[in-house]
Every structure is written in C-alpha cells, then in structure tokens.
Design a binder for these strands. Sequence first.
DNA 1: CAAATATAATGAACAGCGTTAACTAATCTA
DNA 2: TAGATTAGTTAACGCTGTTCATTATATTTG
Lengths: 206, 206
Amino acid sequence: MGIIERKEKQREEIKKMILEASMQLFVKEGFENVSIRKIADLIEYSPTTLYIYFKDKNEILFHLCEMGFERMIAYNLSLIQIENPIDRLYVLGENYINFGLENPEYYDLMFIQNAPMKTVREQNVGHWPNGDMALETLKHIIQECMDKTLIPKGDVATISMAVWAVAHGLVSLAIRQRLERLVEPDKVVQTMHDSIRWMINTLKKA
Amino acid sequence: MGIIERKEKQREEIKKMILEASMQLFVKEGFENVSIRKIADLIEYSPTTLYIYFKDKNEILFHLCEMGFERMIAYNLSLIQIENPIDRLYVLGENYINFGLENPEYYDLMFIQNAPMKTVREQNVGHWPNGDMALETLKHIIQECMDKTLIPKGDVATISMAVWAVAHGLVSLAIRQRLERLVEPDKVVQTMHDSIRWMINTLKKA
DNA sequence: CAAATATAATGAACAGCGTTAACTAATCTA
DNA sequence: TAGATTAGTTAACGCTGTTCATTATATTTG
C-alpha cells in the first residue's frame, strides 16, 4: 500500500521544513535565538506541532549539529589530494581553525554545547556518525605519520587527543573571547595559526 | 561621618550574602540552576532586591567566576616550591586538569561561558584580575624554561597559547563529554594525563 | 456509504526565566 | 517636624520549553 509510504514522505518533508527553518534562524540570528516558538512562527505552524516530529529541542539541535559537520567536511575535501600525511595534518589544523572562526555558531553546537550530546546519548548505542568520522580522520593521519616515521612513535589515541585538544582549545578559547587576555586582540588569529604550526613543528622535530 | 560608612558596610554585607547564596546554589545544584529567583528565595529577599546590589545576573556570575579562580590558585600553592620550571610546568598541567575535572561547574564559568566576560568587557578597561594573573603565571614559567634552555627558544605568547590550548582543550572536551568518542569512557582521564605529559615531553625533546 | 478509528494539528496552560516600572516603607538631612 | 533619599516590594512584561485536552481531518473497517 503506497498510502503509508506517501504519508512517510510527507512526514519527512515537514521534518525537513522544520530543520531548514531552524538553520535559517540559526545562521541569521545565532544559537541563542533559535526557539521552538520562532521556528514554528517561521513555518507557520503552532509550537506544539514540532513535538510531533521531534522529541524535544535537543533533537533539533542535534540535527543542526550534524549539518555543521557536513559543512566542516566541505572544508576538508581537498585533503585527499595531499600525499604527505604531515602536510595533511598541517592543512587539517588550519582548516579546523578556519572553520571554527568562520562558523562560530556551528562550532559551538558541535563541540561546546551539551544539548546535542544529550540526544546522542539517548539514541541507540549513542550514534554520532559525522562526529565519529571526523575523529577517525585525525587518528588515521596520525597513524600514517607514525608509520612513515615522520613523527616519533607513540600511542595514537594519546597523540590524537593532544592534537585535537590544541586545535579545539585554540578555537574554543577564541570564540569565547579568552585569548584576548593573552595577546592583543588584533593578533589573536595570527597567533592561533602560529600556535598550531608550532605544535606540529615541535611534534615533527621531537 | 561614620553613618555613611556603616551604610557602605551593610551594603557590602548584603552583597556578600547574595554571592554566598549564589555559590551555595552553584555548587549544590549546578550552573543551570542558579537563577535570580532561587537566590532571592534562599536569602529571603524579593528578586528585585538583587538588582539594587548587582547590575544583572552576569555580574553575579562574574563574581562566582572570580571565586573559581581563587579556588584554582589554591591548587597551585605548592608550585613555588618547585625549582625546575619544567617540573613546575608538568605540575601546573596536572593541576589544571585536576581542577577542571573536580570543579567542572567552576571551570565552565571561568573558561567556557560567555556571561562573565560580558561583565569584564563592560567594566572599566575590562578588569579581570584573577584571570589575567593565571595567564601571567603560565607565560612566566615558559619564559623561565626558555631562559634555562630547557625548551627551544621561540615566541612566548605563541608557545603559552599552545600549552594553554592543550590543557583547556582536554578539560573542556572532557566536561562536554566529547572525549568519550575518542577513547573508552573509563580511559578518558588517564589518556588526558598522558596527553598533557606527552605534550610537555615533546616540547622538551624538540 | 456510514461509523469507527487513527493521525495531524491546535489553544490554553504550567512552571519557569531575567528584568523593569511604579509604589510603599523606612531612614537620614535640613 | 517636613522633605528628600534609600531600601525593598508587588505586579507585570515578554520570553522560554513542554504537556494536556480538544478539535479537525483523513483513513480504515463493518
């Protein structure tokens, strides 16, 4: 019976409408201005309707978060062309910082806010496809660097964690305006790039 | 005239009452449960009264943030006894992670939330005594390490930023439950410590 | 085809939030 | 003692996420 199929399709379409309206609000007015009521207003439904299609606000934010990861993946499309894994690591770091600075709202949702992880945890076995994939990419590059003895051997998880931590530390401190206390405001971005490069340089020489 | 002096003292005492009630709520029920109304309830005043003593909620959070820094300073009292600056750096890193994991709510306020920085920016020339002091400590240690050629020479701000970024990255990813995607949950804390040690080791060898 | 059922959508409400304006009560000054 | 200053309160505004009971609209069954 094609009727229930069509119904399912309609459901998916309304879900899409809701998410697109959320994203529109999100990019235009920022994370704090995404409210159930404003989304409902935009698509001209009542606020209660959203709860027919999503469990709660966290679930909507989770999907916005996934969109953020897709956006981030777009930043890294050129990576595959780079043969030398350590060069790939440099570019990955640069891209990470650029993505964070250019999309602070998305970055916030993806790596700082609690809300999306609440949904991840509630889901079956905590499925977080895009998030996990990004981490695998990093681990893979580190592993390749070690295999080709471009960096000293060591525990991949430990080193990956440290590298991710530098990048995330820089971006999250920057978008929360903490780095301006360390260097003059107009030098923050430059110093961030210097930092991540210095980090990988150091790693290479060690 | 001692009368206006006594008034000032009373004002200060009520301010203290408000902050202590806030802190009590903060440590017992967490950041999200600190509301103007709950604080007012606790000290048996009306919510509007708080606005006589503080400009807004951000200003209260700023003071809680300062209390957090004092707590953090207590973690580092033993540092002055350590002669070798690189050993001091190791311990500073360990302390930073321990502080963050043991006081996630304070850490959040100090380094993640926007609210306290809003007050800092509104204040005259953005005074943030405790925050700035902590950063000076770090820069000073790095400088000392370079002076004694324990680590390669370089730009102090750049290196300080990188070191802070690793530490902050680890703690903030941990308290936002992102590290569980990289290593098994029960290994997160151990790997964090490994990471920061590995980072300083690498820096030493470079 | 009509009655019963399932689904979609809504209005009203709950309980909370930060904040402000207008007002009362208490205290200090002239 | 009258007037001015200060402390504190009540009531309200405009938000927030979320739920319950109700209506309207399809779809399925007798």
